[in-house]
Simulated scan of single mutants.
Amino acid sequence: MKIRKLLSLLIIFVFGLAIAVSCTPSQPTSNYASTTPAKTSPIQMGFSAWPGWLPWQVAQEEKLFAANKVKVDLKWFDGYLDSINALAAGQLDANTQTLNDTISSIAAGAEQVIVLVNDNSTGNDKIIVRDGIKTIGDLKGKRIGVEVGTVDHFLLLLGLKKAGLSATDVQIQPLETGIAAAAFVAGQIDAAAVFAPFTTKALQRPGSKELFSSKDFPGAIPDHLVVTRKMIEERPQDVQALVNTWFDTLDFMKKNPEKSLSILSKRAGVSVQEYKQYDAGTKIFTIQDNLKAFSPGKDMHSLSYAAQEVSKFLVELKLIKTAPDLTKLFDDRFVKTYSQN
């Protein structure tokens, strides 16, 4: 009898303890250091042919996503603009995009957030011209191939504005970047606004040369990892894992340069020697560079300042109707968490 009574009391105690524990409010997480995925479905992530984004191929082949406990379905896009449209249409959870293209998407109603700076273009975006064109002024009336609405269109307009010209002073030929490079080599257009690795293709035309590049406009073309706001709200641990994977990938590339170059050049469709030429035209951002970029500033090296300038420029050129709300465009919590850990 005593045993049954003791057992009953024990059961009552354990049951009461379980209720007490279950009713205790859970403490909010102070950061996103955990790499445990909130869901098991893979992140749909897009990337395309740009030296600052190709390291994601290294992350995939070296299983660095898995090392950070995040499932990623990495999708390659031959056309950069297609990846932008896919994210805006809800077909992707994350994508690699430039600042101006992300602002354009937000102006159109997309809910997107920049969580990481991959790089700054320092020469790999170029305006390449045929023989006989020596100055930006010589572009007046010429046929220029460019993927309308992309970063190289933006660069072209920056150059024209600097020379006192506008888009109406030239003949814009709307062409996907790879097609623009091929059309230029075939002699169908006078100039092409292209980015690496398509610059290598365009420069195969005899007598062709670089007229100006992103090197002439420092900080104007930052490249990012962009995620949907839904991803941040529902799967912050996975966003953190993506950011962690990026920096782990940079560490791997530093320790394994030959193997990494082989992966990068193969994905870009060029030789290792050709790929090495892209290094000077792309500044890959370290964690310190990221922290600085996300900080307030008064020049194009600060993302908040650059976003305001780019937004005004896009409105001025009527690429967007009105300037969007940029207050929620950047989220630096993930790079800060990586830095702290």
Rank of each mutant, 00 (worst) to 15 (best):
M1F: 08
K2Q: 11
I3F: 14
L7S: 11
V14L: 14
I19R: 05
S26Q: 13
Y32F: 13
S41E: 13
I43R: 06
F47M: 03
S48L: 01
S48G: 01
G52R: 07
G52N: 04
L64E: 10
L64N: 05
L87W: 06
A88V: 13
T96Q: 07
L99R: 09
S104L: 11
A110M: 02
N120M: 06
N124S: 14
N124T: 07
K126M: 14
V129W: 01
R130Q: 15
I136A: 14
I136T: 15
L139V: 01
I144P: 12
I144L: 07
V146K: 11
D152G: 00
L156G: 00
L160G: 03
L160V: 04
A163G: 07
L165H: 04
I172F: 07
P174N: 04
F184P: 07
I189N: 12
A191K: 05
A192H: 05
A196M: 14
A202V: 12
A202I: 06
P206S: 13
K209Y: 04
E210K: 02
S214N: 06
K215I: 06
P222Y: 10
P222L: 12
D223N: 13
L225H: 05
V227R: 05
R229M: 02
I232R: 02
V239W: 06
K255L: 09
K259S: 04
S260H: 04
L264A: 01
V270A: 03
V270E: 01
V272N: 14
E274C: 01
K283H: 15
I284G: 00
T286Y: 06
A293V: 04
S302L: 13
S302A: 15
A307L: 08
S311L: 09
K318C: 03
K318A: 15
A323N: 07
P324G: 09
S339M: 06
